[in-house]
Design a protein around this nucleic acid. Structure first.
Lengths: 192, 192, 192, 192
DNA sequence: GATGAATGAGGGTTCATTCAT
DNA sequence: AATGAATGAACCCTCATTCAT
């Protein structure tokens, strides 16, 4: 009889929001942002069209929601794995995590890369990608320096580019990309 | 007043078709496939909307036209540069051409990469990319073998992935990607 | 903890209802009936959307509520000001009250005039206006007859029309309408 | 076989545009701007919804089109009727034209007055009304001065307001407003 | 009495595509 | 070959209204 408490409402809101975000992620990665209509998302989420606008001001806003959701969910590439004593160990861990991420969360890759390219206005995605890359590159440089590389910066770039190429090729070649063997090869190549 | 010859007609047709394709390329790379309307293309090409349907059955068909056009235009990454005597020279040439292509024809890169990801129905683009990659990879393997690399296949993959990563990063970082230095570094790294 | 008495409930009801009506009046006159949503009203009234439907069956119903509210509030144009002895005095009082109303309650004017025209279904507003006008006109006729006007009815019409023209011009011209001077001029013209 | 000439296209465009404007005028005056949908207009004009956007950028733009159309159609209140010799004759003509306009083109009145009040953003309608009023008032002042009125300006205001009141009352009372008798009464009152 | 999440019809607008000329 | 008026399906979004709590 009495109205729901604020906490109850909050929980309901979170659940609905999540349903919508998950549906949107699924569809965007399956069929592209532009080929997915609000009606599609609503149906996939089992929710009315109108409700979506209770949580997102605009269709593009849903993307922002997805990114936030993913960041909150873990953002697992970035798990810290510093190793003061052994730079080799640290580099190995960085590479391992990157491959693990691509394999385990391949759909995120397949979602974000196209999104970044598909929606030009969405500079904020590019900004996130750029910032992460810069941070990642910085760490690579440090580690490679400690490993004694002379031109550590350029070597970091080649490694970084290669790791960036993986999701791209992966989204085209899928299983034909020999990920496992590549990972092993990198360990060997860098003596890890 | 004399009726135009078949050849004249054919020439007119080719000219109009080219105008449309060039306009579409320009706009797709500037503003994305989905954000470009047939009306936009018509205006950019200085042609009526109706005429476009005289040459292309559908909007997506224009993409096919673009790809064909680009292939016909020279496909310059693929210029043969075999060098039976010196594999080093051949690899150097392959790398050089790749970088040259990215720099000179950056807009094509910025056009094709998004297109490949944006339009899922367009498996044929993926197929083209895949075929080219396979060919390119094959050549890399051969060259690296001749250069004495033990695991030439995996080394070719790393190099290929890296070269694929460049356009991706380039379309995000633009001038902040140190392309020139990267090219030089690769020459040094592979002793070319 | 003791249950509220019926009277207390009734008071609460009245208070909420009034809050809603005042909010709606404010917004309708500020931004038009059609540009004001139930959500806007709820926010302005500091009340939930649901509650509004506790007091009004429909959005249009709120208008009925506003009209009733205004009538109950005093209907101040219509304050009786009969003066058996001096028709001049009576006419002067009628004119004075009209001008006073327009000046003091300008927002009501700006609310009702558009409303009457905007919402055709709302014949009842037109009916009210019509009835008031007829009554007002009747009084004018009587007064003017007593003042000796030969064609009192037509003179009453001209005066009535003029007084109707004021809110209309007022809602367009605002302060550029020389209300004060007009009032004085009318007194002079009718020798009041 | 050959494409239509520019002139032919121009004629087609004018015709379609007019069909749409006439349909919109009809519906706006019958059921209010806000209660008329683009679909309604399309149906009334016997045209597709899409075509309307070939001629008007936006729904509000149609109003601008209507106003322009009406101005181009004649704007008949404003027919010059100067009479250097006899101000009485000139005033009589002004009043006559006003009444004629209201009677003959009542739908325009019923269209524009609500429109001006319904759409607040549409300052341009208000501006037109204001400008016309100022002009009209100015002429009234001049004429009344020549007729010897002492406070010609205020007298002009009362007359102007009254003439403004007519369309307002007319849109509410319709035929119950004794227009004919009012007109005659004014002639008599002003000795025309 | 009160809340706000949820619904769904409907509105404005866009745009690929057709077709008469 | 060429034009651009015309179509209509589809899309994003708004909002009055309902209802479980």
């Amino acid at each position: 009889m009495s109205p729901r408490t604020t906490a109850q409402f909050e929980e309901i809101r979170l659940k609905s929001r999540e349903k919508i975000i998950l549906a949107a992620m699924e569809l965007f990665s399956r069929q592209t942002y532009h080929n997915t209509s609000i009606a599609d998302i609503a149906k996939e989420a089992g929710v009315s069209k109108g409700l979506i606008y209770n949580y997102f001001d605009t269709k593009e806003d849903i993307i922002k929601g997805i990114v936030e959701y993913m960041m909150a969910m873990g953002d697992r590439i970035m798990v810290e794995s510093r190793n003061e004593d052994d730079p080799r160990q640290e580099l190995r861990e960085m590479i391992r995590q990157t491959f693990a991420f691509i394999e385990e969360q391949g759909h995120i890759t397949r979602l974000m890369v196209p999104l970044a390219l598909e929606i030009e206005q969405f500079s904020f995605i590019n900004e996130i990608i750029e910032e992460k890359s810069k941070y990642y590159l910085g760490r690579l440089v440090t580690v490679l320096e400690r490993m004694g590389y002379e031109d550590a910066e350029m070597e970091a770039w080649t490694l970084g580019l290669m790791l960036d190429g993986i999701p791209l090729d992966y989204s085209i070649l899928g299983a034909r990309l020999p990920i496992k063997k590549l990972e092993q090869y990198l360990y060997k190549k860098y003596n890890l």
